[in-house]
Design a protein around this nucleic acid. Structure first.
Lengths: 352, 352
DNA sequence: ATGAAAGCGCTAACAC
DNA sequence: GTGTTAGCGCTTTCAT
């Protein structure tokens, strides 16, 4: 009838016996709750804990309390620089509040994403952080599992679910407007593709900026959200009859690929073709030339996501928080910043 | 006395009642074990499960079974490209075997690393994957917690603990030998710094290759394992009285920094200074020029780590597995590969 | 200030 | 083939 005591050799019972108290008292000192314990008793218990090398059993605690103090994280690809930085920031924020995070990759598969959500829910996570690849995640799924959820990297409100993201349209407009201020009139777009069709805010912003400046619309080069995708788009871009003089890329990784294609063709950036990217993850600072990029406030978003999730555990608000972006001026746009980097547009977060 | 039934509204008991069976039967069908169930009964149970939206409670299962089917991962920085790729591969491998992974970052702090090990152990992980920043991790700590552990990114055997890594010395020698074959005689080293002093295998390999070729030793530039570190090292390197004609960098990220410094100084790679880096993470393919790099077989190592860890749960062997590296020839070394990338040294893993 | 005991949801040995 | 039930380690109410 015994469980194979492989690991949990020492339980609170052993500690209690060793310290000559009841198991309840051990609990009181370990949690400093809900009762006070006499200093002398407490000392004996602590002594016993240290001596026996006692470690509370998380599973038992979770079962009793109904809370695992774990958060589930589902992202497309944790090795992609943007998501790598985001998940790092999320882990740090969660950790500060005593929460551990279960990391899962959907690897671009909707089916895998669903399985992970389900599995994390079954593991009893206290909350779910989901960077979904579905433009319209099935709400019922979440209601059912009942796990508080916040959607990451989500750029439009989704009624019924909390979400956090950036103003894609505004960010793109800032970038394209900047290119226009450098007197460019032929501005192409390298746009990432998501599994399901729907117009990305970056595409809208690019188009809006062009329209307002009464410029003719450039070409949209669709490619995967990856360095390779950008590389292929870059190759297509320069072999057009009339290549653009400037390009806006929907992510840093794509821009890195575009850069490679341009270099291989012997083209100079920004002289022959100027380039601005989106995200401003740390890799964008070390490309050649360094990328001017629309920056997402990753750390602030991560902190807000955790905060929203944990607050939601009690209250159940479903707001969409939009963070502003700034334009980080470096070399690829044609500017020659004097010394350090300049930053535009430092506005604050808004809620919907 | 009731637990606040916030989430786990529906338990196996509800399912049993609804299907008109006992709780044991529900267990049998959910786990397909340890008893057979009549097809008709099974169908009724599955029906009830679906209808009620029943999800097994992981904490209860873990408590009963003494296994959480979770693995703990402790790494210095999950946003560093190398560790990002490693943790991605680890998560994938673990997931295939039904294990979830708890990700934690030590952020370069030994204290944090210890806290995470302790916390993961307390959460009852079935195994620990640890990329320690300590050159000599305290063995007692692990014996005590009793969690099967494998050390990652570990390049020398550590008696008493399983570990996995790459032959740093050999990898570095291959790189430096290659530089020598390009007729370089002044080859500097950009070496990452770890918190505690101890000679890294890459430094040894660099020195050995130089010595065997009867070349005078170049300068060692110590810098952080980061793009910024590499950048600073690169700046120092080119302002020396007699700059080298070739450089071996101990990581891709550092090489990216070196590249930036060289570009800023108007130096050509490989013409003015040739460069080879270590890791060959995916970012090394998209720098300009693309980096020739010593490649670590990240996926194979991840798979082996998981396999070792899970096998160790029963048997308790403590071997050190060394993986071979290859030299991925691209442009930064001075080669002009015809079409695709060439790969050297495809040998197989060895155990100690 | 301390202790006894119930019970969280699940598994599996054992009885039928 | 199915049901009964003990018990995993913990928290906390209630009694002392």
């Amino acid at each position: 009838m015994l469980n194979s005591g492989v690991r949990q050799a020492v339980t609170r019972k052993d500690v209690a016996r060793y310290a000559g108290v009841s198991t309840a008292v051990v609990s009181y000192v370990v949690n400093a709750r809900p009762k006070k314990v006499a200093p002398a008793t407490e000392a004996r218990v602590r002594e016993a804990i240290k001596l026996l090398g006692y470690q509370p059993n998380g599973a038992a605690r979770a079962l009793k309390l109904g809370s695992t103090e774990m958060l589930g994280l589902v992202i497309p690809d944790s090795s992609n620089p943007f998501f790598a930085e985001l998940s790092h920031a999320l882990e740090n924020s969660a950790n500060e509040l005593g929460y551990a995070v279960l990391l899962t990759n959907s690897n671009g598969s909707i089916d895998k994403e669903r399985k992970h959500v389900q599995s994390l829910s079954s593991r009893g996570v206290d909350g779910l952080l989901l960077a979904s690849i579905e433009p319209q995640p099935d709400l019922e799924r979440f209601k059912e599992s009942g796990v508080p959820t916040v959607l990451l990297n989500r750029h439009e409100p989704l009624p019924g679910l909390a979400s956090i993201g950036v103003d894609l349209v505004q960010g793109a407009r800032t970038a394209v407007d900047h290119l226009i201020s450098h007197d460019h009139t032929d501005i192409d777009l390298v746009m990432g593709t998501s599994p399901v069709a729907s117009v990305d805010g970056r595409e809208k912003g690019w188009r809006q900026a062009l329209t307002e400046a009464r410029l003719t619309e450039g070409t949209v080069h669709r490619a995967a959200f990856s360095r390779r995708g950008g590389y292929e788009a870059g190759q297509r871009l320069i072999t057009a009859r009339k290549p653009p003089t400037a390009v806006f890329a929907s992510s840093d990784t794509q821009a890195a690929g575009v850069l490679r294609a341009l270099h291989e063709a012997g083209l100079q950036v920004p002289q022959d073709i100027a380039l601005i990217s989106f995200d401003a993850s740390s890799e964008s600072e070390y490309t050649w030339p360094a990328l001017t990029a629309v920056r997402q406030p990753i750390h602030a978003m991560a902190a807000a996501a955790i905060e929203t999730l944990l607050r939601r555990e009690s209250a159940g608000e479903n707001e969409h928080t939009v963070f502003p972006t700034d334009l980080l001026i470096r070399r690829s746009c044609g500017c020659a910043p004097s010394a350090s980097n300049d930053v535009f547009l430092p506005t604050s977060a808004t809620k919907t």
